[in-house]
């Protein structure tokens, strides 16, 4: 019996990896297509990459662990400021080192946020997360000697990547650097979410009481995930600092946090793919609509959100995946 089971186990496992390989290939193709189709819009695409890292990071705690938060930009902004301050004040301008410093900054912010936010449940959790983002924002505002306060932090001029690829005016280097970072993070996260740890997190989202009745620590697991989420958001923030060469207070804002959540819901929670698709859809529509009609941009976002929540509650990716699954089952 058990031998049979382990034999039948292999195809399913391979199928999972196959899907991931397809996913990674799709990201690569989209990235190359973006590069050639929108050569004058690389800055927008590059900003998208930074935000994708933030939304991926949010998906880890919200989609996989079920933690409600409106303060996730605290992790992103901390990464941005950590990298920016390292470059502007301490002369650490090697881009990969800056990213690493941003990751550490984000992880620290994740640890602090996690410890505070996880003390509450449900509504209290949401309120704590809002408090966190305001506190971080205010702290950055007050520490203007380091952060530049409301003027923003400038004077960040990163070295060429690997000492070879200079950051150019067209943003080509930044774009390629970003795609490489994104792919790397995405692959690591796919490994993470299918690991035993990822399964434990999914369990916590569905029933924390059952998880503790299995002898696992709900709190410790969530804090660990918060730190990992901080690493990812920190990379995103640091990449934003490297690619735009400035860090503004808006990176640590409530708006930034709330928009990240909107993008995640739009794309679909708990798959990582939804985080990418939601970000592309949101930023793209924002760009399109705000250029055409800056006054009605928020109206359209509002209408879109209502439509998604009512008619496609699993988000764009989740709904597409469900339809595809139904089609496949029906086809057999």
């Amino acid at each position: 019996m058990s031998a049979e089971a382990s034999v039948t186990a292999m195809p399913a496992q391979n199928r999972g990896w196959q899907r991931d390989l397809i996913g990674i290939a799709v990201i690569l193709v989209a990235a190359i297509a973006g590069y050639f189709l929108f050569p004058n819009n690389l800055a927008l695409l590059t900003r998208m990459i930074a935000i994708m890292l933030l939304v991926l990071s949010l998906d880890l705690v919200t989609g996989y662990c079920g933690v409600a938060t409106l303060g996730h930009a605290a992790l992103f902004g901390s990464g941005a400021y950590a990298a920016g301050i390292a470059a502007a004040h301490f002369g650490i301008t090697e881009p990969i080192t800056m990213i690493a410093i941003g990751a550490v900054g984000g992880a620290l912010a994740g640890l602090i946020s996690g410890i505070v936010i996880l003390r509450g449940h449900g509504l209290a959790q949401l309120v704590l997360s809002i408090a966190i983002i305001h506190l971080f924002h205010e702290a950055a505002n007050k520490a203007s000697e380091y952060t530049g306060g409301s003027d923003g932090l400038s004077g960040i001029s990163p070295d060429p990547v690997l000492g070879v690829f200079e950051f150019d005016l067209w943003g080509r280097t930044a774009y390629v650097f970003g795609i490489v970072l994104l792919l790397l993070v995405f692959i690591l996260l796919r490994i993470l979410v299918r690991s035993p740890f990822g399964m434990l997190c999914r369990g916590i989202r569905q029933d924390p009481v059952r998880v503790s009745a299995m002898g696992a620590s709900v709190k410790l697991t969530l804090i660990k995930m918060y730190v990992i989420s901080g690493l990812v958001a920190g990379v995103g923030g640091a990449f934003n600092a490297v690619s735009t060469q400035v860090v503004g207070l808006d990176s640590l804002s409530f708006t930034n946090s709330a928009e990240a959540l909107v993008m995640l819901v739009l794309g679909g929670v708990g798959s990582l793919y939804g985080a990418l698709i939601g970000t592309i859809a949101f930023v793209w529509i924002e760009d399109l609509v705000s250029a055409a009609n800056p006054f009605h941009w928020l109206t359209i976002v509002g209408a879109l959100l209502i439509a998604v929540v009512l008619f496609a509650p699993k988000g764009l990716y989740g709904t597409a995946a469900t339809l595809l699954e139904r089609y496949r089952r029906g086809g057999k």
């Binding site: 690991s195 399964m199 002898g215």
Partner: peptide
Amino acid sequence: LQRQGKSGRMAGSFQA
């Protein structure tokens, strides 16, 4: 996995 102290592993899959 939990009983064996392996539920915190961040890579690999139980199916393997």
